[in-house]
Simulated scan of single mutants.
Amino acid sequence: MLFHVFLIHLSILLLPGTSYLTDIVWWSGTIAMALGQIGNFLAYTAVPTVLVTPLGALGVPFGSILASYLLKEKLNILGKLGCLLSCAGSVVLIIHSPKSESVTTQAELEEKLTNPVFVGYLCVVLLMLLLLIFWIAPAHGPTNIMVYISICSLLGSFTVPSTKGIGLAAQDIFHNNPSSQRALYLCLVLLAVLGCSIIIQFRYINKALECFDSSVFGAIYYVVFTTLVLLASAILFREWSNVGVVDFLGMACGFTTVSIGIVLIQVFKEFNFNIGDLNKPNMKTD
């Protein structure tokens, strides 16, 4: 979540007519988010992807709460409920998440990358991306929000696994052994894939923000992006192999709760409604 929030933030920065380039507060926030993304990168190397990616959504409720106090932005009852649901869902995710990594070495990573199931998945994703970018997006992108969201989310299938793979490969680069050279090549390939993925995502996020409301885009993007990232990670790293039925259902409920919370915060933040309205008597007119 933090990764695509960072991209949305930069895309808004570069929209025509914005003057944030001279705003020190905006740049302070951008630098802080960049540092947060570095921490996000380190987290992917230490814990399962199935836990890190959904928990990135915690930045939204905490950011909304801080904005309500520091920037005096209005946080209505639905936004407060969304913050509560996001935190509660995150706790459920932590409780039921896998307790250990399924891939911890470069050799295991290389074996997973050449797995026929994962290769087949990548081929399907690439085919869908080609169809979306060259045929569907030019005709329907400006009128259908799901086109740009699908492109960016499918690219997340490369972004997050590449980030995790770079962290695993980097551990062997500086070791003085025969595998260090292979680790360097693997790291460079993953860096190239990550760079291309980020550049294309940045372009289509910018296009989406020119055509659609950023709040609606961000909420739908979180759900679709996280779902596809979890699918790609499950196929590549097999993180779900040691998860029982109870934990699987718990994680599904936790992710659903977080997603509902994000939608309430993002989509309904301009909705003029508060708890005091429930106490007002109904006024009848003649």
Rank of each mutant, 00 (worst) to 15 (best):
Ala43Cys: 11
Gly167Phe: 09
Gly63Lys: 06
Gly82Ile: 06
Glu101Met: 14
Gly254Thr: 08
His96Ile: 01
Leu131Gly: 12
Phe174Thr: 04
Gly56Ser: 13
Phe3Met: 12
His96Glu: 06
Leu13Thr: 11
Pro61Ala: 08
Val52Phe: 03
Pro281Arg: 12
Lys164Met: 02
Phe134Val: 15
Leu186Arg: 08
Gln181Pro: 00
Ala107Asn: 06
Pro161Glu: 03
Ile166Arg: 11
Gly167His: 04
Pro142Lys: 14
Gly244Ser: 04
Ala183Gly: 01
Asn176Gln: 15
Leu122Met: 12
Glu111Val: 04
Leu15Asp: 08
Leu190Gly: 02
Ser157Ala: 11
Thr18Cys: 07
Ser100Tyr: 06
Asp286Lys: 13
Phe41Met: 05
His175Pro: 00
Phe62Gly: 03
Ile38Ala: 05
Gly36Ser: 02
Leu14Cys: 11
Tyr204Cys: 04
His9Thr: 06
Ile94Arg: 03
Leu78Ala: 13
Gly36Asp: 03
Lys164Glu: 04
Pro138Thr: 09
Val50Leu: 10
Lys80Ile: 10
Leu10Ala: 12
Trp26Pro: 00
Cys253Lys: 05
Cys187Ala: 14
Gly59Asn: 04
Gln171Lys: 15
Leu13Cys: 11
Ala139Tyr: 11
Trp135Glu: 10
Gly165Phe: 09
Leu13Asp: 07
Leu70Gln: 12
Ala183Phe: 07
Ala67Glu: 06
Leu155Arg: 06
Trp240Asn: 06
Phe212Arg: 10
Lys280Asp: 09
Val50His: 01
Thr105Asp: 08
Lys72Ser: 12
Cys196Lys: 09
Phe268Ala: 07
Leu85Ser: 05
Gly261Tyr: 08
